[in-house]
Design a protein around this nucleic acid. Structure first.
Length: 275
DNA sequence: AAGAAGTCCTGGGCGC
DNA sequence: TGCGCCCAGGACTTCT
């Protein structure tokens, strides 16, 4: 599941490889992942353009083009962008291919078709950017416990679904929410408006630490995620609760349990995280 | 407005 | 052995 650290890793890997290069053509075995504009217009606006920079907002990868357009890719749950030589055998489930000048191509592999692609003016004049309602970037220095408290102020919903809501904080997904809540000793079914100031500080610190360490570790490979070269990340070795049901809590030894919170598989330590 | 539930999609795991 | 059911979840839509 590509979350903030996996997208950040991809951006860092791809930047030196594709900035300054021209996209000569686009092919789609499944054009349905292009959300805006029509697929034909998408191709017209991407073809012949040179990539001037790469950036990230939440889980969105942004390729800025020399036309002033932004090519925006969201990898959904199972999507990966792979940089391959054109002659290399095609992987299964490649939905879209961006042919670069030279013999390289960017392949958007996405088995479950949850990915999305857009081309729109970078300045937002054409239509609101996909992230226009998105919450603060948790790795920006401006993200503080106070800002987190502000985003959660007056909210009575369960803390876990709120943290998964990109309008509250950008970039968190199921893995890093569970890891952050464990690290902060907070039960995922606590109502957000019952968190104390101290818990808000711990949660803020846990989120920034977990995401920072995961970026450092080049992301988590769980089931399908790989980097642009098809290699696994490293952070799965450092997961403390996610995917570890039945295994001892690294803090107290109690077996980790798997439950359902807000319809999502959720891993907690029943001793360290009290309701 | 906010919260909760439903929806999309398909490979893989599991039960019979 | 092989078939078919069901699960996984990011973000959007629908409903209450």
């Amino acid at each position: 599941m590509p979350e903030l650290p996996e997208v950040e890793t991809m951006i860092r890997d791809l930047t030196p490889l594709v900035v300054g290069r021209t996209i000569e053509g686009v092919e789609a075995a499944f054009p349905g992942e292009v959300i805006w504009p029509s697929f034909d217009d998408f191709v017209t606006r991407v073809r012949g353009r040179t990539i001037t920079s790469l950036s990230r907002r939440g889980k969105y990868a942004i390729f800025t083009l020399d036309s002033g357009d932004a090519l925006i890719v969201h990898r959904g749950m199972t999507g990966s962008l792979l940089l391959r030589r054109a002659e290399q055998a095609m992987e299964p489930h490649v939905r879209m291919v961006f042919h670069l000048a030279g013999e390289d191509e960017l392949r958007f592999k996405d088995p479950r078709k949850f990915g999305k692609a857009y081309v729109m003016q970078s300045n937002g004049a054409e239509r609101p950017m996909p992230w226009h309602r998105m919450g603060p970037e948790p790795l920006n220095s401006s993200f503080s416990a106070g800002l987190l408290a502000e985003a959660l102020k007056g909210r009575r919903a369960l803390i876990k679904p709120l943290l998964l809501n990109q309008q509250v904080v950008a970039g968190l997904g199921n893995i890093y929410v569970d890891e952050s809540l464990f690290r902060a000793n907070i039960h995922p079914e606590r109502r957000a408006n019952t968190l104390t100031d101290d818990e808000m500080v711990r949660l803020h610190q846990a989120i920034t630490e977990v995401l920072g360490e995961a970026v450092e570790g080049r992301g988590t490979t769980f089931q399908t995620y790989t980097d642009v070269n098809g290699r696994a990340g490293n952070f799965q070795r450092r997961l403390q609760v996610f995917g570890r049901n039945g295994q001892p809590c690294p803090r107290c030894g109690t077996p980790i349990i798997k439950t359902r919170v807000g319809g999502r598989g959720t891993y907690t330590c029943p001793t360290c995280q009290r309701p």
